[in-house]
Simulated assay, not measured.
Amino acid sequence: MAQLYFYYSAMNAGKSTTMLQSSFNYQERGMNPVIFTAKIDNRFGEGKVSSRIGLEADAELFTVETQLFDHIATLNEKQKVHCVLIDESQFLTKEQVHQISDVVDTLKIPVLCYGLRTDFRGELFTGAQYLLAWADKLIELKTVCHCGRKANMVLRTDENGVAMADGDQVEIGGNERYVSVCRKHYKDALK
């Protein structure tokens, strides 16, 4: 039975690595997984998903305008799709989360989403908000703060490494801009 999964975490918990491993598992069994990633995040090249440990794969791109149900249905007509994997799922819109739930319920294709739960202000991303509300399975992937506790928050830092409290919700970056920390160190950094 197909289900909608949301794998969420702070940055650097291995979301992309876990997703690429799932894709490999499907391929190893002769199945056809399809990977999607957000066009806005092109740090590793357009149409690529890369993990920090060096794994990578080609991906379909989505923007806020992408009609995911229609796109996936078309791909499925050309060649049976056994699983849809979505990296950077925090960038999905409410409508797109609804569409991928239709992929699960109507096309009977499992959809595995991987993304951040909250932004650097501690607020939910739209995609995460609706995945938390509508997904069949919620799986937290864990990483650690420099103090050893579970990191569940993300700090955005300026060019001097100082934590920022304000700014646009979306600013693409990696370790040079973001640090995963526990709630205590998140609050301490913003004092």
Rank of each mutant, 00 (worst) to 15 (best):
D58H: 09
K187S: 06
C83V: 13
N12Q: 04
M19N: 01
Q169I: 08
K80N: 10
G115W: 00
E56M: 05
C182W: 13
V154S: 06
T74Q: 15
M1G: 15
Y186G: 06
F69E: 06
D119G: 11
K142G: 05
K48C: 10
G47C: 09
E176L: 09
D41K: 05
S16Q: 06
V179T: 11
S89Q: 00
S9F: 08
G115F: 09
S101A: 05
Y5G: 00
G115H: 04
D105A: 15
I35D: 01
T118F: 07
S89D: 00
D168I: 14
F62L: 03
L68N: 05
H71T: 14
A135Y: 07
G161C: 03
R156Q: 11
W134L: 15
M31R: 08
F91Y: 15
H98D: 07
A165E: 14
T18P: 00
K15D: 02
S101R: 11
V97W: 10
Q21T: 13
G173H: 12
C83Y: 03
T143I: 15
Q129C: 11
F62Y: 14
F91V: 12
G161Y: 00
L190R: 08
S50C: 13
V181C: 08
Y5R: 08
E28L: 10
L141D: 02
R156V: 15
L141P: 01
H82F: 10
M164S: 06
A151S: 13
P33E: 09
G30F: 14
L4D: 06
H185G: 01
F69M: 01
I109E: 08
I109G: 12
L68I: 06
V103H: 06
F6H: 02
S89G: 03
A165G: 13
T63M: 05
R121A: 15
L107S: 03
V111I: 13
V154Y: 04
K142F: 09
L155K: 05
Q90I: 14
G14K: 03
Y178P: 02
M11N: 06
T74A: 12
E123C: 15
V34W: 05
N160V: 08
Q129L: 10
V144P: 03
A13P: 05
L190E: 11
V104F: 12
A10W: 13
S89N: 00
T143C: 14
R156A: 12
L107W: 15
E65V: 02
R156Y: 07
F69S: 06
C113E: 00
Y26G: 00
L138K: 06
N12A: 15
T157I: 14
A38G: 07
M1S: 15
F91N: 01
K184N: 09
E159M: 09
L141T: 07
M31H: 11
L92K: 01
A128W: 03
H82M: 08
Q169N: 13
I109V: 13
L131W: 10
T17G: 01
M153E: 09
L85K: 01
L190W: 11
V34I: 12
K137T: 15
F69W: 05
I53C: 05
N42K: 07
R183M: 10
M1H: 12
L132P: 00
K94L: 04
D105S: 13
Q99D: 12
I139D: 04
S23V: 07
I53Q: 07
D41P: 02
D158E: 04
G54P: 00
